[in-house]
Design a protein around this nucleic acid. Structure first.
Lengths: 160, 160
DNA sequence: ACTGAAACATAAGCATC
DNA sequence: GATGCTTATGTTTCAGT
């Protein structure tokens, strides 16, 4: 799935949809009744809108945000990966490898100096080393990796 | 909030808590009744566990995952930032700037070649340029920025 | 710490305007 | 779209184990 094109129907979102999404992104457990009240619309209308947004793929899902450190993954890092060949088949087979990297929170295929940025959470530095050496560097198409430890995540404003 | 230390009580999570978190991270709208059934415990017990995990900060919140392209932010990028000085006050004032960057999905303070990695979503390349020039490069402590366009996000396995 | 049952709140479908 | 109604589900509390 591309970051610059979407699998979503071209049906544009109106201001109500945007407000709905903002509320829903903030509190994914909000009840339909409460959401309707906030938006100033009937509950049935609100339910219809939410369903439509889900069906169109605008709302992809709702997920609990879990403290990874509490779960036993206190270390985070970003691994920058550069490939030696950008041949189509090599890239495709590397994507299969990427999809299996344990602890990968986010994998971005980017343009510029690096080819991939992989944000990972691990339980120990040993696991981090194993992840880089055994899952990434082993692949022959990988020319270079560089691992940056995450010191801190700074809360941002987001997009909504 | 640090990535390697947690604001969470040292009370360790048992296997039930972990299963609960996995289910809840996958479907943040699951009803308490359904969650209890999946875990094979009483609804009242399940509710107690969820509440305890929330109070302890293990569950930080529940959020809808919204397609940013559909919302009018079809372009994503990662901006790598290097500072010229790592003086404590300079860093602190830069953090205040970071917290206001429009469209920032994730801001990581990292160790290694870069100092900060900022994942952003924007509506246009013009907005991206403005974001980098007017919000980041203007700050005197910023020595260098490099912007990498996100081509694609590759689904990973996650940590759960 | 877990359970079951009662009281309460919410959701979902349908007919109607 | 909005409303009101109905049934089915889901949530919460609490006394008991």
């Amino acid at each position: 799935m591309s970051a610059s094109s979407s699998p979503v129907d071209p049906a544009p979102l109106d201001a109500l949809d945007r407000r709905l999404l903002t509320e829903f992104a903030e509190d994914g457990r909000i009840t339909n009744a409460a959401l309707a009240k906030r938006l100033g619309i009937a509950e049935s209308t609100c339910l219809q809108r939410v369903r439509s947004l889900r069906e169109r793929g605008v709302i992809r899902g709702v997920h609990a945000d879990v403290d990874l450190a509490a779960l036993g993954f206190p270390i985070q890092a970003v691994v920058k990966v550069r490939l030696g060949s950008h041949n189509r088949d090599h890239v495709a087979s590397f994507h299969e490898v990427l999809a299996k990297v344990p602890g990968a929170l986010r994998i971005l295929h980017v343009g510029g100096e690096d080819d991939y940025l992989i944000h990972v959470a691990v339980s120990s530095t040993q696991q981090l080393r194993d992840l880089v050496l055994e899952h990434l560097n082993v692949h022959p198409v990988v020319r270079h990796t560089e691992t940056q430890l995450v010191f801190e995540e700074i809360p941002g404003v987001g997009v909504l």
